[in-house]
């Protein structure tokens, strides 16, 4: 590695400016299996970080630790100045700051689209029904499906469902959005409509961590790309660095397999 390359690499490991998410020395075990090993990373305000890596490398576990869907075993996680602890109040506060979009959408099938979106604002933020529904309609317009508001999730296509899921997360006005392979369960022709929404979100200045296999998305939108393997962060860099000049053998191997 030349010193110039070294410089590029280390510059990119740190977020520029104020950081919204910070992970220090985070370890996570499932029984004896170490899912995350010594993770250090931070995400700056309005930054888009894309996490890639082979399956089982701990990408999903990483972002699920940030909103405590999984409990990390060692290290500290700070979200918007709040350190994640075992206190339920503290956890709730962090969850309100972070939206999450799942691979399987996880919409509530017994509620209409609009009820899916307004449930949390009404229950957690105690918004009035009219206010919450007006907000929800705005969000649905933003993701391009205002005409589906009174339908049930089961009546929508996969792409539409995932866009509803994004709108549902946005309704809580989160500071950070976590995407856990949002397009992996979609039919190919629907991937674009979801990615378009995500691109628009990123351009609007949302802070985002995306676990994804969409390299086109990473190239176009990411400020930084994080490559993980075997529970460790192997390499961090700008998309240009990553796709044109990867340093680590493990990264090269992975990229050669998927590109």
């Amino acid at each position: 590695m030349t010193s110039e390359q070294q410089q590029v690499f280390s510059d990119a490991t740190q977020a520029k400016g104020e950081s919204v998410i910070e992970l220090r020395d985070v370890d996570k075990f499932f029984g004896d299996f170490q899912a995350l090993a010594d993770i250090n990373m931070n995400v700056g305000k309005q930054e888009v970080v894309v996490v890639i890596g082979p399956s089982g490398s701990g990408k999903s576990t990483l972002i699920r630790c940030i909103n405590r869907l999984e409990k990390h075993d060692r290290g500290t996680i700070v979200v918007d100045g709040i350190e994640l602890s075992d206190d339920i109040k503290n956890i709730q506060e962090i969850r309100r700051e972070t939206g999450m979009v799942f691979q399987q959408f996880n919409l509530f099938p017994h509620l209409t689209v609009i009820d899916n979106i307004t449930l949390a604002p009404r229950q957690v933020r105690h918004e009035a029904k009219d206010e919450a529904e007006a907000n929800a309609m705005q969000l649905l317009e933003r993701v391009g499906i205002p005409d589906q508001a009174r339908k049930y999730p089961g009546q929508l296509s996969g792409g539409q469902q995932q866009r509803v899921a994004i709108a549902r997360s946005l309704a809580m006005k989160p500071k950070v959005m976590l995407f856990d392979e949002p397009t992996s369960a979609l039919d190919p022709e629907m991937i674009k409509e979801v990615l378009d929404v995500m691109v628009e979100l990123a351009e609007g200045g949302m802070t985002m961590i995306c676990v994804t296999h969409e390299m086109g998305f990473a190239r176009a939108v990411a400020d930084r790309v994080v490559f993980m393997a075997d529970g460790q962060i192997v390499e961090v860099g700008t998309p240009e660095h990553f796709f044109t000049n990867p340093q680590e053998e493990r990264t090269k191997l992975f990229l050669s397999q998927i590109l």
Binding site: L69, Q92, R95, F102, L119, Q123, R168, S169, M172
Partner: peptide, 17 residues
């Protein structure tokens, strides 16, 4: 499915809700 509970948790809903 576990995802239903997780979606609720991720939205910041209280356990009784």
């Amino acid at each position: 499915p576990r995802g239903q509970t997780e979606a609720g948790q991720a939205l910041g809903l209280a356990p009784p809700t």
